[in-house]
């Protein structure tokens, strides 16, 4: 069951990732990216990260991607026109090389990783309470620095979006 769910959502993630890269229209790319994020959230749930799965959907899909979609709509960005025309042979060669490259990476990871027990759903649960406790004890300084970072980004975005520039 765990393996089946993993395979289904991994396939969705990879399919949406490919669609992100090959779609010509920015809105289609953005929706594919949302698909990737949603399936990754399911995989996080499987790995026992329930808080991080929900944060993924709230922050990424619910805030960042809404901003992207908003900007794409605002600029009314049209479909991208290809700047160069690759020959058919080059295209097929590229696909073959890409698959070979990914296979090589998979092989290296598979070989380099020591044999460990597999992931079973429910094998580990990082609850929201655990994450919160760790965040406000061991990681308090990075957390505070992050808030400063967000403040800087806020000011930067407002300055950039002023009318005078």
């Amino acid at each position: 069951m765990t393996a089946l769910i993993f395979l289904i959502f991994a396939c969705i993630a990879v399919f949406c990732g490919i669609s992100l890269v090959v779609q010509t229209h920015p809105i289609a790319s953005a929706l594919s990216l949302i698909g990737v994020m949603g399936s990754l959230a399911i995989l996080y749930l499987q790995l026992g990260g329930e808080f991080i799965a929900m944060a993924q959907i709230i922050v990424y899909a619910g805030a960042i991607m809404v901003l992207f979609v908003f900007v794409i709509m605002l600029l009314n960005a049209g479909a991208e026109t290809p700047t160069f025309q690759a020959s058919t042979f080059v295209k097929y060669l590229g696909i073959v090389l890409l698959v070979a490259f990914l296979g090589l990476i998979s092989f290296i990871i598979q070989a380099a990783l020591p044999k460990t027990e597999g992931v079973v759903f429910g094998g580990f649960q990082g609850t929201a309470a655990d994450v919160g406790r760790k965040l406000f004890t061991s990681y308090l300084l990075p957390f505070e620095v992050t808030s400063v970072l967000i403040l800087i980004a806020l000011v930067g975005a407002i300055v950039l979006a002023r009318k005078e520039i």
Binding site: A3, G17, L20, Q46, L98, F101, L113
Partner: peptide, 24 residues
């Protein structure tokens, strides 16, 4: 089909997605 998913599958998926990101 094995019930447990090997850890490396997650890493491979991550590598594939990263590669797609670089390509894009």
């Amino acid at each position: 089909m094995p019930n447990a998913v090997p850890l490396s599958w997650y890493l491979i998926l991550s590598a594939i997605l990263f590669g797609l990101g670089v390509a894009g």
